[in-house]
Design a protein around this nucleic acid. Structure first.
Lengths: 121, 121
DNA sequence: CAGGATCCAACATGATACTG
DNA sequence: CAGTATCATGTTGGATCCTG
């Protein structure tokens, strides 16, 4: 539901949750974050790691992550452009949560659940 | 990105994260979950707690939460319909993560960040 | 290399009205 | 009471082509 992005979260207790989720929501953001947590990467480097993303979408996701202060974008003024992406301390502070989310998913969806409602899958 | 729901998560490490997020993604799901974590509630009871939701949307969110096994829907065969919603053990197992997400949001967005990109807000 | 521009389909949510 | 049905809208993300 990335459309909400940074809701006021001063309403119900779930709003802050929603606000946080909106930061890592987006079809590829968590994947990107996971990769960047292992180190700085260039655009096409990220792109190669994640198969299935289009340039446009990856660019958008990176832009949003940047605007949200989770990653940093460093541009080198060179003839063949070079742009590096790095997680910021703020982004890194999400690591435990990301890991927890991944762990929960592996445990509950992979093992005994596997809901498989899958409207899109 | 609720449209992805239960992606294969057998690809990149972020996929399980995405799959988990998809369960609590949806403009009101976390709010609903937070409320239900405090106890069983009826439909309109939930609706009254959360101002701003339409019947249709709340119904949808509840259905998805139910299909994902996070909440249980108990229907009483009565003349004035009565339906109760309760979190399942699986849903309750998400509590720590929800709390962590809320905590992070309160800390980072509320305190020194408050990105405020806000395209919708 | 790292995008920007444009077009488009799918979906999520809202508004409103109706019902067993 | 707890929905369902229908309509309308905005956003996301994909496809494709172009560029400094």
């Amino acid at each position: 539901m990335a459309k909400v992005r940074h809701s006021r979260f001063d309403c119900d207790p779930g709003c802050a949750v929603e606000a946080t989720i909106s930061l890592i929501d987006g079809k590829w953001k968590c994947v990107v974050l996971f990769h960047l947590l292992t180190g700085t990467m260039r655009f096409n480097e990220i792109r190669r790691q994640i198969s299935g993303v289009t340039q446009r979408t990856l660019t958008n996701q990176l832009r949003e992550l940047e605007e949200d202060g989770l990653i940093e974008r460093k541009i080198y003024a060179q003839v063949p452009p070079k742009v590096e992406y790095t997680v910021t301390p703020l982004g890194r502070s999400l690591q435990p949560i990301l890991v927890a989310l991944k762990f929960w998913g592996d445990e509950n969806i992979g093992r005994f659940g596997k809901p498989e409602r899958a409207n899109a899958a």
